[in-house]
């Protein structure tokens, strides 16, 4: 099977869906032929599909999402790109008040086949406005589905599923995984929402995480294995819907749970997962649930500061060792 980068796998998914259904189109800032997207995900697509279907927009985040929404409810399938996840703040009304609620508040009269792509995460010294991980905000908004792919194989299968979903999907990527490679089939495949991927099986502890932290958790698990601790690593792949079963079954097996994401700690997705597990598997827990997150600060710029901000393999290992 050929190895592909996360970036290329994602582009392949977008391309296949655009070939399959001519209602699918992409809009966003600098996604077209001159730039190909800030992270080059859409490079070459404008040349292939034309400037109408790979549409450069003005710097108008609220109108980008709003216009994509208007197109979605009238027969198109837009993929709106917001250049950085931090900039979704400028489109919060259209995302959270409009797209998320439209079906419900109109009593099911319409559905919203809309994908909103954006990118989270630090590690590139881009400081406080280009490095955040804000997925929990959207998990707190009923009506949005949320995909959080961390691997090349997943990103392709999930973007295709997102585009075919009749609901608004927040499709979040991570800056530091675009260049990571994995085997990705050339043949078409879809990955269903709400199905976690278990990267390592283990008996002593469950490590649940997202984005770059899945990669760090795998590294941690491999090192822990050498120390005689068997860790199970779970990547939910989508936060809404959430694969509770895989997580709960794993906790029932291991009795211990470490949650790791790059989000600032308070109100993070890890807090919600911890709450779910204590509600559904309290009697199976042999130790307190551990959370490994960023501190409650803005993302700092200077390399040594950013390095302590973002959790790493060693912090995951220490958290595991505290409870195993």
């Amino acid at each position: 099977m050929p190895e592909k980068t996360y970036r290329d796998a994602l582009k392949e998914g977008l391309r296949e869906e655009m070939l399959r259904d001519e209602r699918v189109f992409i809009m966003g800032e600098d996604i077209g032929r001159n730039w190909g997207g800030a992270f080059k995900v859409t490079k070459g697509l404008a040349e292939e599909f034309g400037d109408d279907r790979v549409r450069d927009t003005p710097i108008s985040e609220n109108a980008i999402v709003g216009a994509a929404l208007g197109a979605a409810i009238t027969g198109m399938i837009p993929v709106a790109e917001i250049m950085f996840g931090d900039l979704i703040t400028l489109a919060m009304d259209q995302v959270c008040n409009q797209a998320a609620k439209m079906r419900y508040m109109f009593g099911g009269q319409t559905s919203v086949p809309l994908v909103m792509r954006s990118v989270f995460g630090g590690g590139k010294n881009l400081a406080s406005h280009h490095s955040q991980s804000l997925e929990a905000w959207f998990m707190h908004t009923p009506g949005l589905k949320i995909a959080v792919p961390s691997f090349a194989y997943d990103v392709k299968g999930l973007i295709k599923t997102a585009i075919r979903d009749p609901n608004p999907v927040m499709f979040f990527e991570h800056k530091l995984v675009y260049d990571r490679k994995e085997e990705v089939p050339d043949e078409e495949y879809l990955i269903p929402f709400g199905k976690a991927r278990v990267h390592r099986e283990g008996d002593d502890v469950t490590i649940w995480g997202t984005f770059l932290m899945v990669h760090k958790a795998i590294e941690a698990a491999d090192e822990l294995a050498k120390q005689g601790i068997s860790a199970e690593v779970i990547d939910p792949r989508t936060l809404v819907p959430l694969d509770r079963k895989t997580l709960i079954d794993s906790v029932k097996k291991t009795g211990r749970l470490v949650l790791v994401t790059e989000e600032t700690k308070t109100g993070a997705t890890t807090a919600e997962i911890a709450a779910i597990v204590q509600e559904e598997a309290f009697d199976w827990l042999d130790a307190p649930i551990k959370r490994v997150n960023a501190p409650d600060t803005p993302v700092p710029f200077s390399p040594p500061l950013e390095q302590v901000f973002i959790p790493d393999k060693d912090r995951i290992i220490s958290a595991v060792r505290e409870i195993v």
Binding site: F25, D52, N62, A63, I64, V65, G66, A67, A68, L69, G70, A71, A72, I73, T74, G75, M76, P78, D93, Q94, N97, Q98, M102, F106, T110
Partner: peptide, 24 residues
């Protein structure tokens, strides 16, 4: 296309619906 409780939130949606009319 909808009535909205957020003042001025309908304008982008209208632009998008018009884009859809044009593209279709």
């Amino acid at each position: 296309l909808g009535a909205t409780g957020v003042v001025a939130s309908g304008l982008p949606i209208a632009a998008g619906a018009a884009l859809s009319c044009q593209m279709r």
